[in-house]
Write a protein that binds this DNA or RNA. Structure first.
Length: 507
RNA sequence: GAUUCCGUAGCUCAGCAGGUAGAGCAUUACACUUUUAAUGUAAGGGUCCUGGGUUCGAAUCCCAGCGGGAUCACCA
Protein backbone atom coordinates (compact mmCIF):
# COMPACT_ATOMS: atom_id res chain seq x y z
CA UNK A 1 0.00 0.00 0.00
CA UNK A 2 1.69 3.12 -1.16
CA UNK A 3 0.46 6.66 -0.94
CA UNK A 4 0.77 8.81 -4.01
CA UNK A 5 2.81 11.78 -2.93
CA UNK A 6 3.28 15.04 -4.76
CA UNK A 7 6.65 16.64 -5.23
CA UNK A 8 6.00 19.00 -2.35
CA UNK A 9 4.91 16.20 -0.04
CA UNK A 10 8.01 14.15 -0.82
CA UNK A 11 10.19 17.15 -0.19
CA UNK A 12 8.65 17.78 3.20
CA UNK A 13 9.26 14.18 4.21
CA UNK A 14 12.91 14.66 3.23
CA UNK A 15 13.06 17.78 5.38
CA UNK A 16 11.57 15.80 8.24
CA UNK A 17 14.36 13.23 7.93
CA UNK A 18 16.99 15.98 7.78
CA UNK A 19 15.66 17.51 10.98
CA UNK A 20 15.89 14.13 12.67
CA UNK A 21 19.47 13.71 11.41
CA UNK A 22 20.30 17.02 13.07
CA UNK A 23 18.97 15.59 16.33
CA UNK A 24 15.82 17.72 16.20
CA UNK A 25 12.52 16.07 17.05
CA UNK A 26 9.95 17.55 14.62
CA UNK A 27 7.16 16.55 17.02
CA UNK A 28 8.55 17.27 20.49
CA UNK A 29 6.62 16.07 23.52
CA UNK A 30 7.59 18.76 26.01
CA UNK A 31 5.34 21.67 26.89
CA UNK A 32 6.09 24.91 25.09
CA UNK A 33 5.44 27.70 27.58
CA UNK A 34 3.42 30.54 26.07
CA UNK A 35 3.06 33.86 27.89
CA UNK A 36 1.13 35.90 25.33
CA UNK A 37 -1.06 35.57 22.28
CA UNK A 38 -1.04 37.49 19.02
CA UNK A 39 -4.18 39.48 19.68
CA UNK A 40 -2.95 40.57 23.10
CA UNK A 41 0.23 41.93 21.52
CA UNK A 42 -1.60 43.75 18.75
CA UNK A 43 -4.14 45.31 21.09
CA UNK A 44 -1.94 46.23 24.04
CA UNK A 45 1.67 46.65 22.91
CA UNK A 46 1.42 50.32 21.91
CA UNK A 47 0.35 51.53 25.35
CA UNK A 48 2.26 49.02 27.46
CA UNK A 49 5.54 48.42 25.66
CA UNK A 50 7.56 47.42 28.71
CA UNK A 51 5.33 44.41 29.20
CA UNK A 52 6.31 42.89 25.86
CA UNK A 53 10.09 42.68 26.17
CA UNK A 54 10.14 38.97 26.79
CA UNK A 55 7.41 37.15 24.94
CA UNK A 56 6.97 33.48 24.20
CA UNK A 57 4.40 32.58 21.58
CA UNK A 58 3.52 29.69 19.30
CA UNK A 59 1.67 29.50 16.04
CA UNK A 60 1.49 28.24 12.48
CA UNK A 61 3.75 29.79 9.85
CA UNK A 62 1.50 31.47 7.29
CA UNK A 63 4.01 33.25 5.09
CA UNK A 64 7.74 33.88 4.83
CA UNK A 65 9.54 36.80 3.21
CA UNK A 66 13.20 35.93 2.94
CA UNK A 67 15.62 38.88 2.93
CA UNK A 68 18.82 36.88 3.03
CA UNK A 69 20.38 37.25 6.45
CA UNK A 70 16.99 38.15 7.87
CA UNK A 71 13.43 37.00 7.29
CA UNK A 72 9.96 38.24 7.96
CA UNK A 73 7.31 35.63 8.58
CA UNK A 74 3.73 35.71 9.72
CA UNK A 75 2.54 33.25 12.32
CA UNK A 76 -1.06 32.60 13.29
CA UNK A 77 -2.27 31.46 16.69
CA UNK A 78 -5.85 30.95 17.83
CA UNK A 79 -6.36 34.68 18.27
CA UNK A 80 -4.73 36.45 15.31
CA UNK A 81 -1.81 36.64 12.94
CA UNK A 82 1.36 38.48 13.83
CA UNK A 83 4.58 39.18 12.00
CA UNK A 84 7.85 37.87 13.35
CA UNK A 85 11.33 39.05 12.40
CA UNK A 86 14.15 36.53 12.42
CA UNK A 87 17.71 37.75 12.00
CA UNK A 88 20.56 35.33 11.47
CA UNK A 89 22.96 36.83 14.03
CA UNK A 90 20.24 37.06 16.67
CA UNK A 91 19.19 33.44 16.70
CA UNK A 92 22.75 32.25 15.93
CA UNK A 93 25.05 34.44 18.05
CA UNK A 94 27.98 31.96 17.79
CA UNK A 95 29.85 30.70 14.72
CA UNK A 96 27.37 27.86 14.28
CA UNK A 97 24.76 29.23 11.91
CA UNK A 98 22.91 25.92 11.45
CA UNK A 99 19.74 27.02 13.23
CA UNK A 100 19.20 29.91 10.84
CA UNK A 101 20.73 28.67 7.59
CA UNK A 102 19.45 25.12 7.77
CA UNK A 103 16.72 24.61 10.34
CA UNK A 104 14.88 27.86 9.66
CA UNK A 105 15.63 28.71 6.05
CA UNK A 106 15.79 25.24 4.53
CA UNK A 107 13.73 23.01 6.76
CA UNK A 108 10.89 25.20 8.00
CA UNK A 109 7.85 25.57 5.71
CA UNK A 110 4.64 27.48 5.56
CA UNK A 111 2.17 25.41 7.58
CA UNK A 112 4.66 24.30 10.23
CA UNK A 113 3.88 25.11 13.83
CA UNK A 114 6.72 26.85 15.64
CA UNK A 115 7.35 28.35 19.03
CA UNK A 116 9.41 31.52 19.36
CA UNK A 117 10.80 33.80 22.04
CA UNK A 118 11.68 37.42 21.51
CA UNK A 119 10.64 41.00 22.07
CA UNK A 120 7.93 43.07 20.45
CA UNK A 121 8.87 46.08 18.30
CA UNK A 122 7.42 48.17 15.52
CA UNK A 123 8.99 47.97 12.07
CA UNK A 124 9.77 51.13 10.13
CA UNK A 125 6.68 50.47 8.05
CA UNK A 126 4.70 50.54 11.27
CA UNK A 127 3.82 46.89 11.78
CA UNK A 128 3.90 45.48 15.29
CA UNK A 129 6.22 42.49 15.10
CA UNK A 130 8.20 40.10 17.27
CA UNK A 131 11.97 40.28 17.04
CA UNK A 132 12.86 36.63 17.45
CA UNK A 133 15.67 35.54 19.74
CA UNK A 134 15.02 31.81 19.59
CA UNK A 135 12.75 29.48 17.72
CA UNK A 136 11.76 25.84 17.79
CA UNK A 137 9.76 23.58 15.50
CA UNK A 138 6.76 22.22 17.40
CA UNK A 139 5.09 20.32 14.58
CA UNK A 140 6.24 19.74 11.01
CA UNK A 141 3.55 19.91 8.35
CA UNK A 142 3.79 17.28 5.60
CA UNK A 143 1.16 18.75 3.33
CA UNK A 144 1.47 22.16 1.68
CA UNK A 145 -1.01 24.70 2.98
CA UNK A 146 -2.95 26.60 0.32
CA UNK A 147 -1.72 30.17 0.41
CA UNK A 148 -4.25 32.97 0.48
CA UNK A 149 -2.69 36.38 0.03
CA UNK A 150 -4.35 39.64 0.90
CA UNK A 151 -3.24 43.05 -0.32
CA UNK A 152 -3.37 46.39 1.47
CA UNK A 153 -6.94 47.12 0.44
CA UNK A 154 -8.12 43.73 1.67
CA UNK A 155 -8.46 41.98 -1.70
CA UNK A 156 -7.61 38.34 -1.34
CA UNK A 157 -5.93 36.23 -3.97
CA UNK A 158 -6.22 32.50 -4.54
CA UNK A 159 -8.83 32.27 -1.81
CA UNK A 160 -9.92 28.66 -1.39
CA UNK A 161 -13.57 28.94 -2.28
CA UNK A 162 -14.42 25.42 -3.44
CA UNK A 163 -17.16 24.33 -1.01
CA UNK A 164 -16.24 20.68 -1.35
CA UNK A 165 -12.66 21.34 -0.32
CA UNK A 166 -13.74 23.63 2.51
CA UNK A 167 -16.35 21.25 3.99
CA UNK A 168 -14.37 18.03 3.62
CA UNK A 169 -11.16 19.57 4.96
CA UNK A 170 -12.66 22.03 7.40
CA UNK A 171 -9.41 22.06 9.35
CA UNK A 172 -7.71 23.66 6.36
CA UNK A 173 -10.62 26.03 5.82
CA UNK A 174 -10.33 27.17 9.44
CA UNK A 175 -6.59 27.76 9.12
CA UNK A 176 -6.69 29.82 5.97
CA UNK A 177 -10.07 31.57 6.08
CA UNK A 178 -10.34 33.74 9.20
CA UNK A 179 -13.97 34.66 8.49
CA UNK A 180 -14.90 30.97 8.80
CA UNK A 181 -13.41 30.80 12.26
CA UNK A 182 -15.33 33.95 13.10
CA UNK A 183 -18.66 32.38 12.07
CA UNK A 184 -18.09 29.45 14.41
CA UNK A 185 -17.06 31.71 17.28
CA UNK A 186 -20.31 33.59 16.76
CA UNK A 187 -22.21 30.33 16.84
CA UNK A 188 -20.79 29.58 20.27
CA UNK A 189 -21.51 33.14 21.43
CA UNK A 190 -25.14 32.71 20.36
CA UNK A 191 -25.44 29.46 22.30
CA UNK A 192 -23.72 30.97 25.34
CA UNK A 193 -25.99 33.99 25.29
CA UNK A 194 -29.11 31.84 25.17
CA UNK A 195 -27.77 29.56 27.89
CA UNK A 196 -27.08 32.55 30.15
CA UNK A 197 -30.57 33.93 29.68
CA UNK A 198 -32.19 30.57 30.39
CA UNK A 199 -30.02 29.93 33.41
CA UNK A 200 -30.78 33.39 34.76
CA UNK A 201 -34.48 32.68 34.30
CA UNK A 202 -34.05 29.64 36.53
CA UNK A 203 -34.34 26.92 33.90
CA UNK A 204 -32.41 23.69 34.33
CA UNK A 205 -30.22 22.39 31.51
CA UNK A 206 -30.86 18.68 31.05
CA UNK A 207 -29.96 15.78 28.78
CA UNK A 208 -32.51 13.33 27.41
CA UNK A 209 -32.18 10.20 25.27
CA UNK A 210 -30.98 10.39 21.70
CA UNK A 211 -31.69 6.70 21.17
CA UNK A 212 -35.44 6.30 21.48
CA UNK A 213 -37.65 3.28 20.93
CA UNK A 214 -40.47 5.55 19.74
CA UNK A 215 -39.32 8.63 17.83
CA UNK A 216 -41.72 11.34 18.90
CA UNK A 217 -42.28 15.04 19.26
CA UNK A 218 -42.27 15.90 15.56
CA UNK A 219 -43.39 14.64 12.20
CA UNK A 220 -40.37 13.38 10.28
CA UNK A 221 -38.75 10.23 9.00
CA UNK A 222 -36.25 8.90 11.54
CA UNK A 223 -32.94 7.06 11.28
CA UNK A 224 -33.27 3.48 12.49
CA UNK A 225 -30.56 1.57 14.29
CA UNK A 226 -30.42 -1.65 16.25
CA UNK A 227 -29.45 -2.47 19.80
CA UNK A 228 -27.67 -5.81 19.83
CA UNK A 229 -27.99 -6.78 23.50
CA UNK A 230 -31.68 -5.90 23.69
CA UNK A 231 -32.26 -7.07 20.12
CA UNK A 232 -34.67 -4.22 19.41
CA UNK A 233 -34.80 -1.44 16.85
CA UNK A 234 -33.98 2.01 18.14
CA UNK A 235 -34.47 5.37 16.47
CA UNK A 236 -32.29 8.44 16.57
CA UNK A 237 -34.44 11.19 18.00
CA UNK A 238 -36.27 13.59 15.70
CA UNK A 239 -37.10 15.82 18.68
CA UNK A 240 -36.78 15.75 22.46
CA UNK A 241 -40.12 17.36 23.25
CA UNK A 242 -41.84 14.37 24.82
CA UNK A 243 -38.93 13.73 27.18
CA UNK A 244 -38.69 17.33 28.32
CA UNK A 245 -42.41 17.33 29.05
CA UNK A 246 -41.98 14.16 31.11
CA UNK A 247 -39.54 16.18 33.21
CA UNK A 248 -42.14 18.92 33.69
CA UNK A 249 -44.49 16.16 34.90
CA UNK A 250 -41.67 15.14 37.23
CA UNK A 251 -41.78 18.51 38.95
CA UNK A 252 -39.15 20.72 37.31
CA UNK A 253 -40.54 24.18 36.63
CA UNK A 254 -38.36 24.85 33.63
CA UNK A 255 -36.03 22.65 31.58
CA UNK A 256 -34.04 23.12 28.42
CA UNK A 257 -31.73 21.14 26.17
CA UNK A 258 -29.60 22.01 23.17
CA UNK A 259 -30.44 18.84 21.30
CA UNK A 260 -28.88 17.23 18.27
CA UNK A 261 -31.85 15.86 16.32
CA UNK A 262 -31.70 13.54 13.32
CA UNK A 263 -34.02 13.35 10.35
CA UNK A 264 -33.69 10.93 7.49
CA UNK A 265 -34.70 13.31 4.73
CA UNK A 266 -33.21 15.23 1.85
CA UNK A 267 -30.15 17.40 2.24
CA UNK A 268 -29.67 20.84 0.77
CA UNK A 269 -28.37 24.20 1.81
CA UNK A 270 -30.88 24.48 4.67
CA UNK A 271 -31.01 20.82 5.72
CA UNK A 272 -28.39 18.58 7.29
CA UNK A 273 -29.33 15.09 8.55
CA UNK A 274 -28.23 16.08 12.05
CA UNK A 275 -28.99 19.52 13.36
CA UNK A 276 -29.37 21.36 16.62
CA UNK A 277 -32.57 22.53 18.22
CA UNK A 278 -32.96 24.30 21.50
CA UNK A 279 -36.15 23.25 23.21
CA UNK A 280 -37.37 24.63 26.51
CA UNK A 281 -40.48 24.22 28.60
CA UNK A 282 -41.75 26.37 31.45
CA UNK A 283 -44.53 25.31 33.80
CA UNK A 284 -47.56 27.49 34.55
CA UNK A 285 -46.98 29.63 31.44
CA UNK A 286 -48.81 29.83 28.11
CA UNK A 287 -47.90 30.72 24.55
CA UNK A 288 -48.51 34.43 25.12
CA UNK A 289 -45.88 34.40 27.84
CA UNK A 290 -43.60 32.45 25.52
CA UNK A 291 -43.89 35.05 22.76
CA UNK A 292 -42.81 37.73 25.16
CA UNK A 293 -40.01 35.63 26.64
CA UNK A 294 -38.66 34.47 23.29
CA UNK A 295 -38.65 37.89 21.64
CA UNK A 296 -36.68 39.23 24.60
CA UNK A 297 -34.37 36.22 24.43
CA UNK A 298 -33.61 36.84 20.75
CA UNK A 299 -33.21 40.57 21.21
CA UNK A 300 -30.64 39.82 23.91
CA UNK A 301 -28.79 37.35 21.70
CA UNK A 302 -28.43 39.92 18.93
CA UNK A 303 -27.41 42.62 21.41
CA UNK A 304 -24.78 40.34 22.94
CA UNK A 305 -23.46 39.49 19.49
CA UNK A 306 -23.43 42.88 17.82
CA UNK A 307 -24.16 45.49 20.50
CA UNK A 308 -27.28 46.54 18.60
CA UNK A 309 -30.57 44.93 17.63
CA UNK A 310 -30.16 44.96 13.86
CA UNK A 311 -28.52 42.34 11.67
CA UNK A 312 -27.73 42.44 7.97
CA UNK A 313 -28.95 39.33 6.17
CA UNK A 314 -28.20 39.35 2.47
CA UNK A 315 -29.43 42.70 1.24
CA UNK A 316 -31.88 43.11 4.12
CA UNK A 317 -31.64 44.79 7.47
CA UNK A 318 -33.48 42.83 10.14
CA UNK A 319 -34.38 44.38 13.47
CA UNK A 320 -34.73 42.05 16.43
CA UNK A 321 -35.91 44.76 18.81
CA UNK A 322 -38.80 43.40 20.88
CA UNK A 323 -41.76 43.29 20.61
CA UNK A 324 -42.22 41.42 17.34
CA UNK A 325 -45.34 41.65 15.19
CA UNK A 326 -48.10 39.10 15.80
CA UNK A 327 -50.37 37.86 13.00
CA UNK A 328 -52.80 34.94 13.15
CA UNK A 329 -52.39 32.27 10.51
CA UNK A 330 -55.86 32.86 9.06
CA UNK A 331 -55.19 36.60 8.84
CA UNK A 332 -51.87 35.93 7.16
CA UNK A 333 -53.52 33.72 4.54
CA UNK A 334 -56.35 36.22 4.06
CA UNK A 335 -53.84 39.03 3.62
CA UNK A 336 -51.67 37.25 1.05
CA UNK A 337 -54.27 35.27 -0.90
CA UNK A 338 -57.46 37.21 -0.30
CA UNK A 339 -59.18 34.00 0.77
CA UNK A 340 -60.83 33.55 4.15
CA UNK A 341 -60.28 29.87 4.96
CA UNK A 342 -61.48 30.00 8.56
CA UNK A 343 -64.71 28.14 7.81
CA UNK A 344 -63.59 25.82 5.01
CA UNK A 345 -63.63 22.03 5.25
CA UNK A 346 -61.09 19.73 3.64
CA UNK A 347 -62.86 19.81 0.26
CA UNK A 348 -63.01 23.59 0.33
CA UNK A 349 -59.31 23.79 1.13
CA UNK A 350 -58.46 21.44 -1.71
CA UNK A 351 -60.29 23.73 -4.09
CA UNK A 352 -58.42 26.77 -2.73
CA UNK A 353 -55.11 24.97 -3.26
CA UNK A 354 -56.11 24.10 -6.80
CA UNK A 355 -57.11 27.72 -7.50
CA UNK A 356 -53.81 28.96 -6.10
CA UNK A 357 -51.86 26.36 -8.08
CA UNK A 358 -50.47 24.65 -4.99
CA UNK A 359 -49.39 21.04 -5.28
CA UNK A 360 -51.13 18.74 -2.77
CA UNK A 361 -51.18 15.00 -2.01
CA UNK A 362 -54.24 12.85 -1.43
CA UNK A 363 -52.84 11.86 1.97
CA UNK A 364 -52.90 15.46 3.23
CA UNK A 365 -55.44 16.31 5.89
CA UNK A 366 -56.98 19.70 6.61
CA UNK A 367 -54.08 20.94 8.73
CA UNK A 368 -51.47 19.95 6.19
CA UNK A 369 -53.41 21.69 3.41
CA UNK A 370 -53.50 24.93 5.36
CA UNK A 371 -49.81 24.57 6.04
CA UNK A 372 -49.19 24.18 2.30
CA UNK A 373 -51.10 27.39 1.55
CA UNK A 374 -49.18 29.28 4.20
CA UNK A 375 -45.84 27.88 3.05
CA UNK A 376 -46.49 28.70 -0.60
CA UNK A 377 -48.11 32.10 -0.34
CA UNK A 378 -47.32 33.73 3.03
CA UNK A 379 -44.12 32.50 4.64
CA UNK A 380 -41.71 34.33 2.34
CA UNK A 381 -43.31 37.69 3.04
CA UNK A 382 -42.31 37.91 6.68
CA UNK A 383 -38.87 39.46 6.65
CA UNK A 384 -38.90 41.27 9.98
CA UNK A 385 -39.44 38.96 12.98
CA UNK A 386 -43.14 38.05 13.10
CA UNK A 387 -45.09 35.61 15.24
CA UNK A 388 -47.65 33.66 13.23
CA UNK A 389 -50.23 32.47 15.75
CA UNK A 390 -53.19 30.14 16.17
CA UNK A 391 -52.69 27.16 13.91
CA UNK A 392 -55.34 24.63 12.91
CA UNK A 393 -55.64 21.76 15.34
CA UNK A 394 -54.97 19.08 12.70
CA UNK A 395 -51.34 20.06 12.20
CA UNK A 396 -50.48 20.41 15.88
CA UNK A 397 -51.09 17.12 17.70
CA UNK A 398 -49.16 18.12 20.83
CA UNK A 399 -50.70 21.55 21.28
CA UNK A 400 -53.48 22.68 23.58
CA UNK A 401 -56.72 23.69 21.90
CA UNK A 402 -57.31 27.41 21.65
CA UNK A 403 -59.06 28.87 24.70
CA UNK A 404 -61.62 30.75 22.56
CA UNK A 405 -61.40 29.70 18.90
CA UNK A 406 -62.68 26.22 18.11
CA UNK A 407 -60.62 24.29 15.59
CA UNK A 408 -57.43 26.17 16.43
CA UNK A 409 -54.58 25.56 18.82
CA UNK A 410 -52.46 27.91 20.92
CA UNK A 411 -49.37 27.76 18.77
CA UNK A 412 -47.02 30.22 17.16
CA UNK A 413 -44.10 30.09 14.80
CA UNK A 414 -41.54 32.84 14.54
CA UNK A 415 -40.81 33.85 10.97
CA UNK A 416 -37.67 35.82 10.15
CA UNK A 417 -36.42 36.62 6.66
CA UNK A 418 -39.18 34.47 5.23
CA UNK A 419 -38.16 31.40 7.18
CA UNK A 420 -39.33 29.68 10.32
CA UNK A 421 -36.83 29.77 13.14
CA UNK A 422 -38.98 28.86 16.15
CA UNK A 423 -42.10 26.86 16.87
CA UNK A 424 -43.92 27.09 20.21
CA UNK A 425 -47.16 26.37 21.97
CA UNK A 426 -49.23 26.04 25.05
CA UNK A 427 -48.49 22.38 25.65
CA UNK A 428 -51.34 19.93 25.52
CA UNK A 429 -51.63 18.49 29.04
CA UNK A 430 -55.07 16.90 28.78
CA UNK A 431 -54.24 13.16 28.56
CA UNK A 432 -57.61 12.22 27.07
CA UNK A 433 -57.30 14.86 24.35
CA UNK A 434 -53.68 13.84 23.74
CA UNK A 435 -54.69 10.22 23.26
CA UNK A 436 -57.32 11.26 20.70
CA UNK A 437 -54.80 13.40 18.85
CA UNK A 438 -52.38 10.47 18.64
CA UNK A 439 -55.21 8.37 17.26
CA UNK A 440 -55.82 11.01 14.59
CA UNK A 441 -52.15 10.67 13.64
CA UNK A 442 -52.65 6.93 13.35
CA UNK A 443 -55.42 7.57 10.83
CA UNK A 444 -53.10 9.82 8.82
CA UNK A 445 -50.55 7.05 8.85
CA UNK A 446 -53.16 4.68 7.46
CA UNK A 447 -53.86 7.23 4.71
CA UNK A 448 -50.21 6.96 3.70
CA UNK A 449 -48.59 9.83 5.58
CA UNK A 450 -45.28 8.21 6.53
CA UNK A 451 -44.33 11.14 8.74
CA UNK A 452 -47.34 10.95 11.04
CA UNK A 453 -46.57 10.48 14.72
CA UNK A 454 -46.48 7.19 16.59
CA UNK A 455 -48.50 6.76 19.77
CA UNK A 456 -46.19 7.02 22.76
CA UNK A 457 -48.02 5.19 25.55
CA UNK A 458 -45.47 6.02 28.19
CA UNK A 459 -45.85 9.71 27.41
CA UNK A 460 -49.62 9.38 27.79
CA UNK A 461 -49.09 7.60 31.12
CA UNK A 462 -46.92 10.54 32.23
CA UNK A 463 -49.64 13.04 31.27
CA UNK A 464 -52.18 10.98 33.21
CA UNK A 465 -50.21 11.69 36.37
CA UNK A 466 -50.79 15.36 35.63
CA UNK A 467 -48.64 17.94 33.86
CA UNK A 468 -49.02 21.58 34.84
CA UNK A 469 -50.07 24.00 32.13
CA UNK A 470 -46.82 24.60 30.28
CA UNK A 471 -45.39 26.73 27.52
CA UNK A 472 -42.77 25.17 25.25
CA UNK A 473 -40.66 26.21 22.29
CA UNK A 474 -38.14 24.85 19.82
CA UNK A 475 -35.59 27.13 18.17
CA UNK A 476 -33.45 25.94 15.28
CA UNK A 477 -29.94 26.86 16.33
CA UNK A 478 -28.36 26.23 12.94
CA UNK A 479 -30.91 28.39 11.15
CA UNK A 480 -30.67 31.10 13.78
CA UNK A 481 -26.90 31.07 13.42
CA UNK A 482 -27.16 31.23 9.62
CA UNK A 483 -29.32 34.29 9.96
CA UNK A 484 -27.21 36.04 12.57
CA UNK A 485 -23.97 35.39 10.70
CA UNK A 486 -25.40 36.18 7.26
CA UNK A 487 -24.73 32.73 5.81
CA UNK A 488 -27.08 31.24 3.23
CA UNK A 489 -26.03 27.61 3.71
CA UNK A 490 -26.36 25.42 6.80
CA UNK A 491 -23.04 23.86 5.78
CA UNK A 492 -21.41 27.19 6.64
CA UNK A 493 -22.48 26.98 10.29
CA UNK A 494 -21.73 23.28 10.86
CA UNK A 495 -18.10 22.36 11.34
CA UNK A 496 -18.54 19.03 9.59
CA UNK A 497 -21.63 19.01 7.38
CA UNK A 498 -22.71 15.65 6.03
CA UNK A 499 -21.03 14.80 2.72
CA UNK A 500 -21.06 11.78 0.50
CA UNK A 501 -18.07 9.59 1.37
CA UNK A 502 -14.96 10.24 -0.66
CA UNK A 503 -14.23 7.00 -2.44
CA UNK A 504 -10.58 6.19 -2.20
CA UNK A 505 -8.87 3.79 -4.54
CA UNK A 506 -7.02 1.17 -2.51
CA UNK A 507 -3.67 0.49 -4.03
C1' G B 1 -35.30 12.31 -6.23
C1' A B 2 -35.63 15.94 -10.98
C1' U B 3 -33.20 19.71 -13.96
C1' U B 4 -28.70 22.30 -14.94
C1' C B 5 -23.55 23.78 -14.50
C1' C B 6 -18.76 22.25 -12.93
C1' G B 7 -14.26 18.65 -11.90
C1' U B 8 -6.78 20.63 -15.60
C1' A B 9 -0.06 21.49 -10.93
C1' G B 10 -0.32 22.23 -3.53
C1' C B 11 -4.07 26.76 -4.37
C1' U B 12 -6.74 30.11 -7.98
C1' C B 13 -7.65 29.56 -12.92
C1' A B 14 -6.55 29.64 -18.61
C1' G B 15 -6.47 26.09 -22.58
C1' C B 16 -11.43 23.13 -26.16
C1' A B 17 -12.97 24.69 -34.70
C1' G B 18 -9.59 17.38 -31.73
C1' G B 19 -2.52 17.34 -32.78
C1' U B 20 0.25 13.93 -26.06
C1' A B 21 -0.73 21.01 -21.46
C1' G B 22 0.01 26.87 -19.64
C1' A B 23 -0.07 31.47 -16.10
C1' G B 24 0.09 33.67 -11.14
C1' C B 25 0.96 32.28 -6.23
C1' A B 26 3.25 28.03 -3.69
C1' U B 27 7.91 24.69 -4.22
C1' U B 28 13.57 24.29 -5.35
C1' A B 29 18.43 27.09 -6.19
C1' C B 30 21.06 31.83 -5.93
C1' A B 31 21.14 37.25 -4.34
C1' C B 32 19.45 40.73 -0.63
C1' U B 33 20.07 42.35 7.78
C1' U B 34 12.90 46.37 8.78
C1' U B 35 9.96 43.54 4.37
C1' U B 36 4.65 43.08 3.72
C1' A B 37 0.30 40.30 -2.46
C1' A B 38 8.57 41.84 -0.77
C1' U B 39 11.82 41.89 -5.21
C1' G B 40 15.24 39.92 -9.11
C1' U B 41 17.29 35.59 -11.94
C1' A B 42 16.86 30.44 -12.99
C1' A B 43 14.62 25.52 -12.34
C1' G B 44 11.31 21.47 -11.15
C1' G B 45 6.29 19.97 -10.72
C1' G B 46 0.31 17.14 -13.99
C1' U B 47 -3.27 9.10 -14.07
C1' C B 48 -6.16 17.12 -17.51
C1' C B 49 -12.21 13.05 -11.75
C1' U B 50 -12.93 7.52 -13.30
C1' G B 51 -14.28 3.93 -17.12
C1' G B 52 -15.75 3.11 -21.99
C1' G B 53 -16.60 4.94 -27.22
C1' U B 54 -15.59 7.86 -31.95
C1' U B 55 -10.77 9.02 -34.30
C1' C B 56 -4.42 8.00 -37.25
C1' G B 57 -4.70 11.10 -32.76
C1' A B 58 -9.11 13.15 -27.03
C1' A B 59 -8.00 17.67 -21.41
C1' U B 60 -11.03 19.04 -25.74
C1' C B 61 -16.39 15.32 -29.08
C1' C B 62 -20.10 11.15 -27.37
C1' C B 63 -21.96 7.61 -23.41
C1' A B 64 -21.89 5.84 -18.40
C1' G B 65 -20.26 6.41 -13.43
C1' C B 66 -18.26 9.19 -9.08
C1' G B 67 -18.00 13.90 -6.48
C1' G B 68 -19.54 19.06 -5.86
C1' G B 69 -22.50 23.69 -6.73
C1' A B 70 -27.18 26.00 -8.14
C1' U B 71 -32.56 25.62 -8.90
C1' C B 72 -36.91 22.62 -7.78
C1' A B 73 -39.60 18.86 -4.85
C1' C B 74 -39.86 17.12 0.79
C1' C B 75 -38.69 19.05 5.38
C1' A B 76 -36.48 22.29 10.46
Amino acid sequence: MSQHLSEQELLRRQKLAELQQLGINPYPADEFKINVNALDIKENYERDKLNYKDVSIAGRVMSIRDMGKACFAVIQDSTARIQIYIRKDDICPTDDKTLYDVVWKKLTDIGDIIGIEGYVFTTKTGEISIHTTSFKILSKALKPLPIVKTDESGNSFDEVSDPEFRYRQRYVDLIINPQVRDTFKKRTQIVNSIRNTLNNAGLLEVETPILQSIPGGATARPFITHHNALNIPLYLRIANELYLKRLIVGGFDGVYEFAKDFRNEGMDRTHNPEFTVLEFYVAYKDYNWMMKFSEELLEKVVLDLYGKTTVTVGDKEIDFAAPFKRVTMYDAIKEHTGVDISNLDEEGLRKVCKDLNIHVEASMGKGKLIDEIFGAKCEGNYIQPTFITDYPVEMSPLTKKHRTNAGLVERFELMVNGKEIANAYSELNDPIDQRERFEEQLKLQERGDDEAMFIDHDFLRALEYGMPPTAGIGIGIDRLTMMLTNNAAIQEVLFFPQMRPEHKAED
